[in-house]
């Protein structure tokens, strides 16, 4: 479980996050949603320590994640897996080396054990026998899957995904969503997904935090979200025609 308390963050004089609190539970897919530019990515970066919040705290299963306590921080970092918006595969390494990389850096496993894990993860994300392809030879959807495989290979307890299905066709997008849901349940991770895709919200939103202009103005699940009366959230949820028809 990840808890955040009163996270605030500004850049220069621009306040991006206003005192955000919330709880992301284990074994669930937790979503952070909101319009473009409301600070979703900034919040995610504060959570994983790529940005330091000005105020507030982040607790990973009760352990505070701050720069003051280096050893706990390093320990927590090693339990984090993250899928970046652009996949962020290392383009000088092939698929196998990419997925193996966290194991090389952070564990003492033998080469065989590592390869076994890599193949297991590739299998989980539905990609077999592409070990020796370079990232430049993969399609966008395949890159995302490899990114997910790399994120979970070191038995990550916490899985973060920044817009896992942006730029993908609807079918692949759903496959990626299902994969995240399945992995979360199978591996019992605490999963946090940033998205503005309503499909994902309905499909996998077991807990949803809605941000608007850097403030949390609603939280709930994918059933409650359709019945809400809050105007900003309604505008977001029913922004496209299809959703309006469904309503």
């Amino acid at each position: 479980m990840i808890e955040i308390e009163n996270i605030s963050k500004s850049f220069q004089d621009k306040k991006v996050l206003h005192s955000i609190s919330g709880k992301f539970e284990k074994g669930k897919t937790n979503l952070i949603i909101g319009a473009s530019g409301t600070g979703k990515s900034v919040l995610l970066k504060c959570l994983v320590g790529l940005l330091n919040p000005d105020k507030g705290s982040v607790l990973f299963d009760g352990r505070p994640f701050t720069e003051s306590d280096k050893s706990t921080t390093t320990q927590i970092r090693r339990e984090i897996g993250m899928l970046f918006q652009g996949s962020a595969l290392f383009d000088s390494k092939n698929v196998e080396e990419n997925i193996k990389f966290p194991l090389d850096m952070l564990t003492e496993l033998t080469e065989n054990e590592k390869i076994e894990k890599v193949n297991h993860c590739l299998n989980l994300v539905g990609l077999d026998k592409i070990n020796f392809k370079m990232p430049s030879e993969l399609s966008g959807g395949m890159k995302k899957r490899v990114g997910i495989a790399r994120a979970i290979v070191n038995d990550s307890k916490y899985l973060f995904c920044d817009e896992p299905n942006s730029g993908l066709d609807p079918l692949t997008a759903i496959k990626i969503d299902d994969l995240i849901l399945e992995l979360t349940q199978k591996l019992d991770t605490t999963t946090i997904v940033v998205t503005h895709d309503m499909n994902s919200v309905i499909e996998i939103g077991e807990y949803i935090m809605f941000l608007h202009n850097g403030k949390k103005i609603w939280e709930g699940n994918n059933k409650e979200i359709l019945k809400t009366k809050i105007k900003e959230l309604n505008d977001f949820v029913f922004s496209n025609k299809l959703m309006k028809k469904i309503r």
Binding site: T74, R77, A88, D91, L106, F160
Partner: peptide, 15 residues
């Protein structure tokens, strides 16, 4: 290139 494609962030997240 590694910076703008978040590869450097990916390293940092791994600790």
């Amino acid at each position: 290139t590694m910076r703008i494609t978040e590869q450097i962030d990916a390293l940092e997240v791994m600790g």
